[in-house]
Each structure stands twice: as structure tokens, then as C-alpha cells.
């Protein structure tokens, strides 16, 4: 804090003799430099800490997160039937697949798929396919037993899914998502 190189008082230290002053200011920081840097640092950190809560409050809240899992009894789903259940505010399809539907899904060569995944990777029990019922294009709910593969067809922009819920044609980029789930018993499944 040796301020002797500067004119006294709050005068314009940087305006006087030009060339030397910027180096002088670095070598001999005065009170104003200190206040400038300290205020700037507090301001930047303060702004960041205030902005984060303002942004983060938009995220899913505790009551939404608390509804993150459901239990479903699958025994009543007849072969060929699709049950739609509500999970985290949106639909989940539980499809009791027929032998023909399973065979069609299993026998599809991976080279025909846009988002390659075998049928085995997508199910825990081959007869029960559980997928999130939200089109991976723009979030519409696809219609079951529709389209050339008899899987699903999205009414919004025409994406076609097969009996494994895999994307086959249309603008959707990905297969219908498989949610996290576990069989609690032979017929009871916990989703989420």
C-alpha cells in the first residue's frame, strides 16, 4: 500500500502521465484498486449465489419426486392387451405380448433398427413389455396395435414403433424408454 507514486486524494491517478501508470497501479495497488476488486468479487459471487435459487426453483419439487414409484398388479392383463398406467405424471405401457409379437420382436435383425437394441435387453419377462408411453420425438402418447409392425404409431408426427417399442420409422430418434422396474412377485411389478 505505498501510494506515494500517486497524486494525493481521489484524483484520476490513471490519467496523468500515461505509460507508467498501469504498471504502477499493479505494483502499488491503492485503496481504490482494492475496493474495486473486492466489490467486483463480492458482486460476482453474490450474483451467482442469488441466481442459482432463482433458476433451481423451477426443477421438480419434493412432492413430485415423492411420487416417483408405483406398484402394479399385472395378473389381470390378458394376452395381447396393453395396460396404460400413470407414472410420474405420464403414461407407462404394460403390454402382455402374444407369442407372435415376441417372435417378431426377437427375430428382427439389429441392422434394421435406427436405435439398435435386442428385444432381450428391453424386457425382464419376454411376455411383459414395460415401456414409457411417450414418443421420443415430441412427447405425444403413441397408439397401441397400430402401424405396419402392429406395435405403436404416434398420432402426432407418424413415428412407428415395433412390438418391442423400438423406433422403426418416422422422426423419433430413440426407442420408447424402458423405465426402471422390478418384479416384486410373479405378478406384481414396481415401476420406478
Amino acid at each position: 500500500m505505498h501510494a506515494k507514486a500517486f497524486p494525493p486524494g481521489p484524483g484520476p491517478a490513471a490519467n496523468g502521465s500515461g505509460v507508467h501508470l498501469s504498471t504502477l497501479a499493479i505494483e502499488n495497488p491503492n485503496r481504490r484498486d482494492f475496493l474495486f476488486l473486492a466489490t467486483g468479487a463480492v458482486g460476482a459471487v453474490g450474483a451467482a449465489t442469488v441466481v442459482w435459487p432463482l433458476v433451481d426453483q423451477m426443477n421438480p419439487d419434493a412432492s413430485t419426486l415423492a411420487l416417483a414409484s408405483i406398484e402394479v398388479d399385472t395378473s389381470a392383463i390378458a394376452e395381447g392387451q396393453i395396460l396404460t398406467v400413470k407414472w410420474r405424471g405420464g403414461p407407462v405401457f404394460i403390454r402382455h405380448r402374444t407369442k407372435k409379437e415376441i417372435d417378431a420382436a426377437v427375430n428382427t435383425p439389429l441392422s434394421e433398427l435406427k436405435d439398435p437394441q435386442t428385444d432381450q435387453e428391453r424386457v425382464k419377462k419376454p411376455e411383459l413389455l414395460i415401456v414409457v408411453g411417450v414418443c421420443t420425438h415430441l412427447g405425444c402418447v403413441p397408439l397401441g396395435h397400430e402401424g405396419p409392425y402392429d406395435g405403436w404409431k404416434c398420432p402426432c408426427h407418424g413415428s412407428i414403433y415395433d412390438t418391442s417399442g423400438r423406433i422403426r420409422s418416422g422422426p423419433a430418434p430413440l426407442n420408447l424408454a424402458v423405465p426402471e422396474y422390478a418384479f416384486l412377485s410373479d405378478t406384481k411389478v414396481k415401476i420406478g
Binding site: 433458476v55 423451477m58 426443477n59 421438480p60 410420474r88 405424471g89 412427447g139
Partner: peptide
């Protein structure tokens, strides 16, 4: 999208905001 919705799908928080 979850941030915009305030959930995992369009719902009550989305409508309110």
C-alpha cells in the same frame, strides 16, 4: 424439459408457471 415442466411431464407446476 424437466426443469421447464417442474416434473417428469407437463402437469400442475407447468400450468401454474
Amino acid at each position: 424439459s424437466h426443469w421447464l415442466w417442474g416434473g417428469y411431464a407437463v402437469g400442475d407446476p407447468t400450468l401454474n408457471r
